[in-house]
């Protein structure tokens, strides 16, 4: 208990300087807007954005829910597919050779360019889901495959010595050994799933469809409602941070007992 309190105190101390810097930045922004009388349609003050967040909360939060629910769905599907494919690739070198180039092509092709195409073939919601899935899938696949493949050779010898079956080798050795890389992949994929969803929503929004938060940004832009654009952006930013934070916490809680990455580093 005392250790936990001590840790929280340390975390608070560590978080104070960046929070202070952010507060100072907001104050400077607020001051500049009032000082030079900048109109809200050019640059709204933080206080105006905050008021907009409160006033438009019903619209903005229901849109956020749409975006987040698609992001989470895409992320979960990407996790299941990425892990299953990585496991299959670890069992079969042939499969790995066949899949690897396509996975890389998928990864290096800009998602912004794929989104309009997806919108031709799929309903907007489905297109957003597929888009978010496509960007989240690769880091999970590549990280998990890397983790499964880079098990210490001496440990493999040990399992050879005791004639472990492929299944036991997987659950007792490869899977736990791959956990750190898998979790790192999850952290990357979480943020990317949100980006993929937003990109697809923007593409769909430009065509006048959709109801996610990115669509609200586009819509507010058309109406020159700049404070609402900022409010929606702030919500997206906060969601991204929350996703990253949640996945970092998951990684920390899973690895803290034994893995160096979860010990003594906070980023």
């Amino acid at each position: 208990m005392r250790v936990a309190i001590e840790k929280m105190r340390e975390a608070l101390v560590a978080a104070t300087p960046p929070l202070l810097a952010f507060a100072a930045f907001l104050a400077l922004w607020e001051w500049a807007v009032w000082q030079w009388g900048i109109p809200a349609y050019q640059l709204p003050a933080p206080s105006v954005i905050a008021r907009k967040l409160v006033d438009d909360r019903a619209l903005l939060f229901s849109s956020l829910l749409v975006t987040l629910s698609i992001t989470v769905q895409a992320f979960l599907i990407a996790t299941v597919c990425g892990v299953l494919l990585a496991l299959a690739m670890a069992q079969s070198k042939w499969l790995a050779r066949i899949v690897a180039p396509y996975a890389i092509i998928l990864q290096v092709t800009p998602i912004v360019a794929i989104a309009p195409l997806l919108l031709i073939y799929l309903a907007p919601q489905q297109a957003v889901l597929v888009c978010a899935f496509l960007v989240a899938f690769f880091p999970i696949l590549s990280n998990t495959a890397l983790g499964l493949a880079s098990v210490d050779h001496a440990l493999l010898d040990l399992f050879d010595l005791y004639r472990a079956s492929a299944w036991r080798r997987l659950i007792y050795l490869r899977a736990p050994a791959a956990l750190p890389q898998f979790l790192a992949g999850l952290r990357i994929a979480g943020g990317l799933a949100l980006i993929g969803a937003i990109v697809a929503e923007l593409a769909a929004g430009a065509a006048g469809q959709g109801s996610g938060l990115a669509f609200r940004i586009v819509e507010a832009g058309f109406r020159l409602d700049i404070p609402r654009m900022f409010a929606a952006l702030a919500l997206l930013s906060f969601s991204g941070v929350a996703i990253y934070g949640a996945l970092s916490l998951l990684s920390y809680l899973t690895l803290r007992r034994w893995h160096e990455s979860a010990r003594g580093r906070g980023f």
Binding site: D152, A154, D157, L158, Y172, R257, W258
Partner: peptide, 10 residues
């Protein structure tokens, strides 16, 4: 017994 202890760290 290997050169390294080869224990499973988890």
């Amino acid at each position: 017994v290997f050169q390294d202890p080869t224990l499973l760290p988890w």
